[in-house]
Design a binder for these strands. Structure first.
Lengths: 110, 110
DNA sequence: TACTACATGTAGACGGGCTACATGTAGCTG
DNA sequence: CAGCTACATGTAGCCCGTCTACATGTAGTA
């Protein structure tokens, strides 16, 4: 998958994986990898800055903990994040409809 | 629609509208606007550079003409462009599956 | 000891879509 | 005629999210 295809679509995906359970960064990476069937293998240089951005924006809240001698920063969805996730989903639906309307207009074959 | 959502998805959309008939830039803008139901209103600073990029890459070929005293640069799909369009479509399908697998995993309600 | 998995993070490059500007023709209306 | 809108193409430079590459450290295992 091309790099910039992701642009603008990553945020709602991150919010989605922490919707029902708070996760730390590494676990978020794994969750994305699993939910995408192995396609979404984010480099740390993408994920961690994104998480900080989302926290700064108020969509995520984080908390440090130590598990098995390793420090974890666990993120959970805020109420603003919940709204943002809902918005992101409907924006995705709209975007998808636009792309498909252009790529495969009614009556097109291939 | 957010600006960078488009990133990486515009190229196949442009190729798609010139698939069956060559069009000039302005007409491509109108075709995108129409196929998207009014959602895809590209600024000229997006479309024209994109067309040149696609031509430089060998996916489009252009030709000048004059219609009603106005100069037009008409673009048509090359055979490489046709392949690229097919690739772009299947990449879109893959991308879409990834996003939806993350946003709405099996068993999710909202 | 060395390697892998776990875990977090930054600096700087890259590039495509954006705003804003520049240029010109054709046709309509007051 | 003057002024406006639609038609038509184009560039310069900004913006910013994702990327590569690097840095740091713990735990477990071969």
């Amino acid at each position: 998958m091309k790099a910039d295809a992701l642009r603008g679509h990553l945020d709602p995906m991150i919010l989605a994986v922490v919707e029902h359970e708070p996760l730390h960064g590494y676990a978020i990476m794994e969750a994305l990898l699993e939910r995408s069937g192995g396609a979404l293998d984010l480099p740390t240089g993408t994920l961690y800055p994104a998480l900080r951005r989302l926290e700064r924006a108020g969509y995520l809240a984080s908390e440090w903990s130590t598990v098995g001698g390793r420090k974890r920063r666990t993120y959970q969805l805020t109420s603003a994040g919940q709204k943002m996730l809902a918005t992101g989903k409907s924006e995705w639906d709209a975007f998808r409809a636009v792309v498909e309307g252009v790529l495969r207009p009614r009556g097109a074959s291939s």
